[in-house]
Nucleic acid binder design. Structure first.
Lengths: 189, 189, 189, 189
DNA sequence: TATGAATGAGGGTTCATTCAT
DNA sequence: GATGAATGAACCCTCATTCAT
């Protein structure tokens, strides 16, 4: 009994994993608005299965990105422990944040969509990442290395926007612009 | 006969004007993906008329913004004539560029859409605005006021991205970030 | 110009007629909840056409029955003019009302559905038929031929309910029961 | 072995009871077309269990109402024993019948659905209740208190229909109409 | 030219039903 | 017996696009 339940639950978990992978892949190709049918098809399951695991698109999107969001947030604490200048810590964290953004093609666009179904994604990032970023900013500002008027949300949003790439504006361009933006945030002595 | 054709042409021109106005208005409300029918309705014409004048959505979008794009481009030459520092000229031009962007709700998003139907909008901006911006950059770089490695397209794209506003990231935030970005583009002596 | 518009409008009117006929027929077979596709199919048009003419199911249902509802309502005034006893007029009107109900298989059921999309059908009948029935009731009551406590809506609803037929309870049974109900509404001297 | 089977059977019986209770409750809220999953959920069992006990919806519906149907049928014999007029016995039985109908929200509608899955419910009522009602009618007719042409099924169906309530037609209205219907069934001397 | 009716592909969502464990 | 994950048919609705008048 326990076994058979375990087996089924394991199967469900595998399905869930497959769905997350399929959704992530489809998001890369089509963006977070990818048709549910396509996601189901890529995972080789019926549409009903998608709805069973993720009743709303928001829950699916959120689930897809939650793991990486958490990892990114955790990095902030780690960096603060390291024997490096606070502004250097911020720079490195922003690098990781960018990595997260760009590996998720279309996430940038999704973040600025006003579609209510994606609000929770916004909330997820706000609740998790903003405090992480804020801690780094505070440290850098306290060290006199950053203009203390810079706020975490605004900076993250700006970085996120700058990393929305396209034809003739690739990741390298985005990173260059982010670098210049950060330079402009440094304390003007 | 000639007369009646002339009359008809005049009518067609008026229809075209009305369509552009209607589309511009609808783009403000719904973004550039506004349903064709809504645009036709606002202009009080049939959908067929929209298609006759602008066979593709791209042509309509392009036409809507062309006039303002041209104006913005012309401003660069004017600014270069004025007795101000080249970097100041660039700053002012960027201000005007932002003004253009933000008065067109949704244009920012449109610019980064990969929808092929909007590619021509991209091209329009490239062909017209990039040279304008480049002339200002060149002047500022020549005056030693700007890092000469900054390219027009990348800068414009970055500015455009930074001005994609949303909840908790308003125009003021966008402008602030643009200011810091420009600061980061200044020549580092 | 006028002609061609006239032609198109005529075509649209014909389509509308065909849709009403198709819907009426489909309602007979499947009830008012018949899939829109089936109605479109029976009328040999695309689903979009159904939605163009009747944006909501309620509008379609209402339109299907409006003509007959109006006719039925008009009958009341006619009957009141005739040289017959008021209670006889009421009886005849109820007969006509029943005729209307039973020729529309499924209407009875629809009337008691709580589906909000059918509310307007309810309203239509209330607004149009209730006053008609009330005028007859009033006359009969004034003539001392009917219990004045009987109200139009309640009576109509009761008649409507009694005419919901099924296996082993045919129209004849329904009419018999209506007859007995009316007998029970007569003034008890 | 015998024991464990007995235990399992007892468990199955309990499950069945829980299912009937859950279904009855759900029918009150959503009508007899309530989703199977909702019923399973309320009974805290899996959907498969519902299907094991009641392979078709009809069987479930029938089982839910059988007990009360039986009770109602038994009442007829009781009433006939009492020292009251036969027509009074009929009236009281009809009252009980109404009570049964109205406490089951949606049963009225279900009875007139032509959904084949509900046919058996129909049969149940026919086989059990009709003879009960018929015995009362016969007695009343024999006593000269009722038109002998009234048949049990037709009367029950009519009463059932009159008790399908809705907005602006409440239970009181239904009962009033039933009263008038019964009045119209009295022997006309 | 202008019109707008008609089309139908496309994407969302629900739920009855099956079946492996 | 019980479970509940998976399936997919069936509906709903929107809108870009065509074309006869």
């Amino acid at each position: 009994m326990t076994d058979s339940i375990g087996v089924r639950e394991a199967g469900a978990k595998r399905t869930r994993k497959a769905l997350l992978a399929a959704a992530a892949a489809e998001f890369v190709v089509q963006g977070v608005q990818a048709p549910i049918r396509d996601i189901a098809g890529r995972a080789d399951v019926g549409v009903g299965t998608v709805y069973r695991h993720f009743p709303t698109r928001a829950e699916l999107v959120t689930a897809v990105y939650r793991h990486q969001v958490d990892e990114c947030a955790a990095l902030a604490a780690t960096l603060l422990q390291e024997p490096i200048a606070p502004s250097e810590a911020l720079t490195r964290w922003i690098d990781a944040f960018i990595e997260f953004l760009v590996t998720k093609h279309g996430l940038g666009v999704a973040l600025l969509s006003e579609d209510p179904s994606l609000l929770s994604l916004h909330t997820l990032m706000l609740d998790t990442l903003v405090p992480a970023c804020a801690s780094l900013i505070e440290a850098a500002a306290a060290a006199g290395e950053l203009d203390p008027r810079v706020t975490a949300y605004t900076l993250m949003r700006a970085v996120g926007n700058l990393c929305i790439i396209g034809p003739e504006y690739d990741l390298a361009s985005g990173k260059e612009m982010v670098g210049r933006l950060l330079a402009g945030c440094r304390r003007t002595t």
